[in-house]
């Protein structure tokens, strides 16, 4: 790693220095991005020790692959794409498979007849589960049941609040595909939560 002296003066990440293999610029990246990237990886894996291993491996792969960064996205988006891929691979290896498949997601979408809803929807009362922690557990369990592709989009868009454009680059899919997955995931979650929150 090469050394540089002026990075401590910069508030942001110096991408040019990073791409030249500057050690302090890379350390700056690790310090500033570790917490947020760890949260994303942890939400995918639900395993703190493994999430830390994946975080470390992510930075290592990023450093060793700096010359493969094409500047087609933000550097941090590229970094997150590496982390998300590694986390999803680790999740698949752990064989903690989601309990729902694509057919289940299809079944949980609303149905229509001649363009109109073919079912009615009773009012919800999320306060039914008075404790916020209990509500969070029910919702967490529902998210965990989603197939991997859907769960990842929900984590990135609706929990970690990355933009559709960033998520599309992180997952290497179109913005339209992100919206379709997110919409189908939300509708499946709505269907799963219905029994808990019906008035």
């Amino acid at each position: 790693m090469k050394q540089s002296s002026d990075l401590s003066k910069k508030p942001g990440i110096d991408i040019e220095a990073l791409l030249k293999g500057d050690q302090r610029a890379f350390e700056h990246l690790v310090v500033s991005e570790s917490p947020r990237l760890f949260r994303v990886i942890m939400r995918i894996l639900n395993d703190e020790a493994e999430a830390e291993n994946v975080l470390q491996e992510t930075f290592l792969q990023a450093y060793l692959g700096l010359d493969t960064f094409r500047k087609e996205s933000k550097f941090t988006t590229w970094l997150y794409a590496i982390g998300i891929n590694l986390a999803r691979a680790s999740f698949r290896k752990s064989k903690r498979l989601s309990s729902l498949d694509e057919h289940d997601i299809d079944r949980m979408q609303p149905t229509f007849s001649r363009g109109m809803f073919s079912q009615t929807f009773e009012q919800w009362n999320p306060q039914q589960l008075a404790e916020k922690s209990e509500r969070q557990r029910v919702v967490h369990d529902a998210i965990d049941q989603l197939p991997d592709d859907y769960r990842t989009v929900v984590i990135l868009r609706d929990i970690e609040e990355h933009s559709t454009d960033d998520v599309s680059k992180m997952l290497d899919i179109s913005g339209g595909a992100v919206r379709v997955r997110l919409h189908r995931a939300r509708q499946a979650l709505r269907s799963m939560l219905e029994t808990h929150f019906r008035d």
Partner: peptide, 24 residues
């Protein structure tokens, strides 16, 4: 969407950054 958004915060392990830098 609102209930998904209010998922519990993830706590960051102590010394996470230091261990990551040591690993690198």
């Amino acid at each position: 969407v609102e209930m998904v958004n209010e998922q519990k915060a993830i706590s960051i392990p102590d010394q996470l950054v230091e261990r990551t830098l040591d690993f690198l």
